[in-house]
Nucleic acid binder design. Structure first.
Lengths: 168, 168
DNA sequence: CGCATACCTGACCGGATTAGTCAGGTCAGG
DNA sequence: CCTGACCTGACTAATCCGGTCAGGTATGCG
């Protein structure tokens, strides 16, 4: 599972739909304006999201996209998996070069890491993000837009002073 | 922090040095032969690893690379951060478009996710991989590398030193 | 000394991916 | 019918990935 900006765009857009899709479907143009994402790029992404059954499309005037399931039933992992290339791991060979025991430890490391990250992404749903967005709206957040750790610091912390909580 | 095959190569190579670097330095040609990684590509990777102080180089005949610190003091996160591009997130603008509260929830999501994954990668050291490699050597493992969508649960033992916070 | 070894540097390259554009369709409501 | 919106596909510039090539530079050893 690759973590790229493409999945980030998709999750952002899906969150927008979950937030503003109460009554009417949300149009891509609206998302484009709100989230500053290219309209044509959104069309690509939502094409994949629709084909993966994560959103329903409503054509014609007044149309747009709405979530196919409840926001609590859509995980971040679903969105990223839908939008990222469905390429299989170990594309080339993969059977004979792994009979050797040397690639084993790293292979198991990556498998474990992958499962770890995947489990985390699967545990976070769009509903969680909506709820988090709500509490962010209630509490004053204009204090300092600096990227500081206003967020809970339960994580083991930033051991990289050089890199300010960059992308994954 | 992006997760790409580049970091995977680097960790694999570093693990090789940790495993076979007992007495003499390990030459890149040896790693290239063992791990089937291009020699020139290894030179690029180890150039970055050296500049980041993760390995020491010994020039001349009989030279090679050895770990700059103890294997228990080098985490997977260190290796990946060293080898991956140090590009900063939010390259363009980044201050005015985030005053709006709409990009906040996703921003906090990615920050939390990043911290989560980073914490996991930082908790795994090369020494851990060496130890895991040893037990892999004792127990015969020749299972089929086939693994479908349902992520394998064959990760015996504790691959999670840090407790995974269910929800951020 | 001289030379082989091995690190070191930088340019270059083909392919893949990213982010985005453009030009057209197709469906549905007013 | 006409307009809003989805839908499709081709195309592009930029970037990254994995790798190659051509040269350096330092060092041990005969």
């Amino acid at each position: 599972m690759r973590l790229t900006t493409k999945g980030r765009f998709a999750v952002t857009a899906m969150l927008d739909v979950a937030l503003h899709g109460g009554s009417a479907p949300v149009t891509l143009a609206t998302i484009s304006g709100r989230q500053k994402i290219s309209l044509s790029y959104l069309e690509q992404l939502f094409g994949k999201l629709r084909r993966h059954g994560l959103v329903d499309s409503v054509r014609g005037p007044g149309g747009g996209y709405r979530l196919a399931r409840d926001s609590a039933a859509i995980s971040v992992a679903d969105v990223i998996a839908a939008v990222d290339a469905p390429i299989d791991a170990t594309p080339r060979g993969g059977e004979d070069h792994c009979t050797d025991d040397r690639c084993m430890p790293t292979h198991r490391l990556w498998a474990g890491l992958d499962a770890h990250i995947l489990g985390y992404l699967q545990s976070v749903t769009l509903a969680d993000l909506v709820r988090r967005s709500d509490e962010a709206g209630t509490t004053a957040i204009h204090a300092s837009p600096r990227e500081g750790g206003a967020h809970a610091e339960k994580m083991g912390g930033d051991a990289h002073p050089r890199e300010p909580a960059a992308a994954v």
